[in-house]
């Protein structure tokens, strides 16, 4: 069932580059990353690409396939017409290092700015008690494989390099929401969300949600509730009204945490 497909692959570095044409064999069941590997093995041994798991678990192989932000290992060749030319380009929002590899250090810098998890000081390891329903909200966000496709897609940074300073993108606003919804976390990150991570830049277009390979409801379940909670704070700084955030109230709803 093999056929020969036409590919255009962006090749170059931080000084510039261009699409290069390739004809390459495609076999049944293959994904775009297989084709890139075949190019490396047969025609372009120095073609730069990142990958690890080949199963959508590590978030390394992000790129744009025919302009769409995708994981190459989860993009099946059978979704294309054999006659179609397939174009692979690096993620646009991050500076190119070489070929399909981009400099994603922006993301790691932002990650380091999110105030870490802080459990109650008197809670001993082994004594953590949390109900499944209370951990599920944050668990959804912890499915994130850090492919950074959402941050690559969000128009607030995709087309506005200067916003990168003030805006951390959906990935790290979601991380703030995740920590805030953690049943045993004790830190209030609402000011940080606005001031350091630019929550206000997000105008809930949901483009991030659409590209998330983990199908996390980034906008509906993380960003909007976070915005609501920040708004709540303006009315009443002591109590959170938003029912999604249990932190103020959650600990008494969770099963008893025994002492000792």
């Amino acid at each position: 069932m093999g056929y020969s497909a036409k590919f255009k692959v962006w090749r170059g570095d931080d000084e510039g580059g261009a699409l290069e044409d390739f004809d390459v064999d495609v076999n049944e069941g293959e994904v775009v990353l297989d084709i890139v590997h075949r190019l490396q093995a047969t025609q372009a041994p120095d073609l730069a690409v990142r990958w690890n798991c080949k199963a959508g678990k590590c978030g390394s192989c992000s790129a744009e396939v025919n302009g769409k932000p995708r994981l190459m290992c989860m993009t099946r060749m059978s979704t294309f017409d054999p006659a179609e030319t397939i174009t692979i380009t690096p993620m646009r929002t991050f500076p190119v290092i070489r070929d399909l590899v981009t400099d994603v250090s922006y993301n790691y810098t932002k990650a380091r700015m999110v105030p870490a998890f802080a459990p109650p000081a008197d809670l001993e390891p082994g004594d953590y008690r949390m109900a499944q329903v209370d951990v599920e909200r944050s668990q959804e966000f912890r499915k994130c494989i850090e492919c950074f496709l959402c941050n690559n897609t969000c128009h607030a940074v995709r087309d506005h390099e200067d916003n990168k300073d003030g805006f951390s993108g959906p990935r790290f606003l979601m991380r703030i929401a995740e920590l805030d919804m953690h049943p045993l976390d004790t830190v209030d990150r609402r000011d940080v969300a606005v001031e350091d991570h630019g929550l206000g830049y997000c105008n809930i277009t949901k483009c991030c949600t659409e590209v998330c390979p983990e199908h996390i409801h980034i906008t509906d379940n993380a960003l909007i509730p976070l915005k609501e909670r920040v708004a709540d704070k303006k009315y009443d700084p002591l109590f959170s009204v938003s029912s999604l955030f249990r932190k103020a109230t959650g600990r008494d709803k969770a099963p008893e945490t025994p002492k000792g």
Partner: peptide
């Protein structure tokens, strides 16, 4: 257990 103090969220039993 130490991982929980770092922020891990494992699936839970009925008693939490």
């Amino acid at each position: 257990w130490e991982l929980e103090t770092y922020g891990a969220l494992f699936d839970r039993t009925k008693d939490g």
